[in-house]
Nucleic acid binder design. Structure first.
Length: 768
DNA sequence: CAGTGAGCGAGCTTCCGCTTGACTT
């Protein structure tokens, strides 16, 4: 048995480190936190200095037992968890859970996984920093209090199963408020004037007037003046400029760039990066640091010098700008920078690696040297000038490898401008005045939301992706694409000494994979902002982070800080629970022409819906859920009334009604007790489908089901062996049970199946 | 929860941050 046990957080890290240390060392992983507050209740003794009740979660028990056994036999236990608040807490929890005595424990830290860094760490051990641990406890307890006291208010006042929290609720607010801005935005029209000029030698140049007109009359006036204006080049100015590379990737910038350049979702990027990490191709992918190890910088210099020449190399150290960065790791970079391509079958993973390689290499390369030229053309009877801007690359530097993508379209820059001199006479081939409209602020993408969250200091590299998926799962926001709309605009032209105006049309405003708030998101956000201003404040996290830092410095007692926070917060909780109205987002659409009853749009037990009549009426009100794409804010009376056309009875089959409707999973027909989906591409709709068409869908479905059937049994009609997406399985009532390895599905007898069912573990509850 | 939305009332839902497999019909 080894004398030394080293515990790190990640198993991949453990494997690497084990190679660096001698055989006296065994390196194990804690797989993250080993203790936490149980999820069933709040588990904090508020009266007693906010004492948390920690437990070892079920799925960690085996691991903790194993670690304890090894620790008992070891002479020294080296706690090598990350050097940040959470890492320090993991070390402390390990001491508690493994019952380690302080004299056997040494706490070590390193920011990069290199042999020198680790050996140096071993030489300079310290003790677990209890102040830092307490800062983490304060963070943990505050989040639990906020989440577990606010969420039940939503269950009561809005809808069951909703959630609220320090991070997710602010993320939803960002999306909801952007949508509000967009709604109240009115586009402003203005006219851009663009001239196409040519000199005697036939050299052509495009230049834009240095002002825009907000009135048509002014644009028209200018165009008319250009009819007999004489133009010449009035100035040419060139000056050198440079561009510098951006820092290596952090989690957040990797997510943004993979979204812009490769179109990956935030979650996708993380899954692929995890694969690269586990196969030893890249460094740790959840990091807020832009730092590169000296080893990596040396290697980058070598690779660049060899591949592109020494003039392309430039060592650079970057410093992080993001709020609350804890920098426990390196930036995300290839482990071996000389490996330009990675040999992986999956193209998506390979493309992500390529991006990381280029970004890392470019970050250690020379500036690009440019020459920017501004050329002005004046007309003899025009006060304004036409301007052309050009850019020439003198030395490409880092641009040879990589250029960061942009979220919003930039002003276009021409390449090299034609060689023209001051005084050159120019002829106006054509001058156009084009009506343009200002754009509303863009909706967020997943990645730009992460960027915003990072700026506000809410969330951490390990939680960006899960948070975005949580607020989608709760139905607060959704990812959608909009088609855009037709936009008419005026187009004026001066050509051959006369001017003319025509109307043109373009498609504008189309957006792909943007985040929209749902009705529930809007209602919940309004409710929380009204009743919990402090928590929903964009600066709340930054404020409490400052106090966590004070706790970490030993300047503040953690439970006193919590007490100051909790008193007013809990008062708000009680007050809101008792005194606030139910939040339904109710909108009165008008009167139903048929029944003369009011029609309301609001949020109900199961989401947004339309209600005809009041619940106090003698006759029960009628209800219908909103369809996809409809919102309480936008739905019209006509659209609302149409929702009550379904479900439709198409006719009968074997004495049972055949029904067409739209349900949770889209349009369907129901024949006897079988539901058949109406597929999107079938051109059938539940409003128009006939009995014959429905019966055909039904017969097709029965055919399909037959193909899936491997065997069924006389003994029990509810038990079947079927072929599914993941291979054969046993269906028993509503339960699906996998067939143990080594057994052939075709040969299973009824008795075999019963045996397998009995041996099968209880299915875990699915989280919805 | 593929049909619901009042009422009866119990029992359930929920946070953030650290880590991977297990699991999916």
């Amino acid at each position: 048995m080894q004398k030394n046990l080293v515990i790190v957080e990640s198993p991949a890290k453990a494997k690497t480190i084990e190679g660096y240390l001698g055989k006296d060392f065994i390196v194990k992983s804690s797989f993250g936190h080993v203790r936490d507050l149980p999820s069933k209740d709040i588990s904090i003794d508020i009266e007693n200095d906010f004492k948390p009740k920690y437990v070892v979660p079920k799925d960690k028990k085996k691991l903790v037992d194993e670690l304890r056994k090894i620790a008992d036999k070891a002479e020294t236990i080296w706690l090598a968890t990350d050097e940040d608040r959470e890492g320090e807490a993991i070390s402390w929890h390990l001491m508690e859970a493994l019952e380690l005595s302080e004299d056997k424990v040494k706490r070590i830290v390193f920011h990069e996984i290199t042999k020198t860094a680790i050996l140096k760490a071993i030489e300079t051990p310290r003790k677990v920093d209890i102040n830092l641990v307490n800062a983490q406890q304060a963070r943990r307890v505050l989040d639990r209090l906020v989440g577990y006291e606010m969420s039940p208010i939503l269950w009561r006042k809005v809808k069951p199963s909703l959630s609220a929290g320090r991070v997710q609720s602010v993320a939803v607010r960002i999306i909801a408020e952007r949508e509000q801005e967009i709604r109240s935005f009115t586009p402003k029209a203005s006219f851009r004037v663009i001239g196409y000029f040519v000199n005697n030698e036939g050299k052509k140049i495009k230049a834009e007037l240095d002002r825009k007109f907000d009135k048509w009359e002014l644009a028209d006036e200018l165009l008319k003046k250009t009819v007999d204006s004489k133009f010449d080049v009035s100035s040419v100015e060139s000056k050198p400029a440079k561009k510098s590379p951006v820092a290596p990737f952090t989690t957040s910038t990797l997510q943004q760039e993979a979204s812009r350049k490769l179109g990956y979702s935030v979650a996708q990027t993380m899954t692929l990066a995890q694969k690269l990490y586990e196969s030893g191709k890249i460094t740790y992918m959840r990091t807020d640091s832009v730092n590169l190890s000296d080893l990596a910088m040396n290697e980058a210099e070598n690779v660049i010098t060899k591949s592109y020449g020494a003039e392309y190399a430039k060592r650079r150290k970057y410093t992080t700008k993001s709020k609350g960065a804890q920098e426990a790791h390196e930036a995300i970079r290839p482990v071996d920078l000389s490996e330009k391509d990675v040999n992986i079958d999956d193209g998506r993973t390979a493309r992500l690696y390529d991006l990381i390689w280029k970004r890392t290499i470019a970050s250690q390369m020379a500036d690009a040297q440019l020459e920017r030229t501004t050329l002005k053309i004046s007309g003899n009877n025009i006060e304004r000038v036409f301007v052309a801007k050009g850019e020439v690359i003198k030395f490409d530097g880092f641009l040879h490898v990589y250029l960061e993508g942009k979220d919003d379209a930039e002003e276009e820059n021409e390449g090299r401008l034609p060689d023209l001199k001051v005084g050159d006479a120019m002829n106006a081939d054509e001058i156009n005045a084009i009506e343009r409209f200002s754009h509303h602020p863009p909706r967020y993408t997943e990645a730009s939301l992460v960027k915003k969250m990072e700026e506000l200091g809410i969330g951490r590299p390990s939680t960006y992706a899960p948070t975005i998926s949580t607020i989608q799962k709760r139905g607060y926001i959704e990812k959608k694409s909009t088609e855009g709309r037709k936009q008419k605009y005026r187009f004026g032209s001066m050509k051959d000494h006369s001017t003319s105006w025509i109307d043109k049309e373009e498609n504008t405003g189309a957006e792909k994979n943007k985040l929209f708030p749902t009705d529930i998101g809007v209602v919940v956000n309004d409710f929380l902002v009204e009743h919990f201003k402090r928590i929903l404040d964009y600066n709340f996290t930054a404020d409490v982070e400052k106090q966590f830092d004070e706790i970490a410095e030993g300047e503040k007692v953690w439970f006193k800080m919590l007490n100051e926070f909790y008193k007013p917060f809990h008062a708000d909780v009680e007050n809101t629970m008792e005194n606030s109205e139910k939040a339904t987002g109710q909108r009165n659409l008008g009167i139903d022409p048929k029944t003369q009853k009011p029609i309301l749009a609001r949020i109900g037990r199961y989401g947004p819906m339309i209600q005809i009549g009041e619940s106090t009426d003698e006759e029960k009100p009628k209800f219908a859920s909103l369809r996809e794409g409809q919102t309480i804010q936008d739905i019209t009376l006509e659209e609302a009334i149409k929702l009550f056309d379904l479900p439709r009875v198409l006719g009968t089959f074997e004495d049972k009604d055949v029904i067409a409707a739209i349900g949770r999973f889209g349009p369907y027909v129901k024949v006897k007790s079988t539901f058949v989906s109406i597929k999107k591409d079938s051109e059938l709709t539940p409003e128009e489908i006939t009995l014959e068409q429905a019966m055909e869908l039904y017969r097709n479905k029965l055919e399909e089901d037959k193909k899936k059937l491997i065997s069924e049994f006389e003994e029990d009609a509810t038990l079947k062996v079927l072929n599914g997406r993941y291979g054969p399985f046993i269906k028993f009532g509503k339960k699906n049970i996998r067939i143990p390895k080594g057994q052939e599905a075709e040969k299973l007898t009824y008795e075999d199946c019963v045996k397998i069912i009995k041996a099968a573990p209880e299915p875990k509850r699915k989280k919805k």
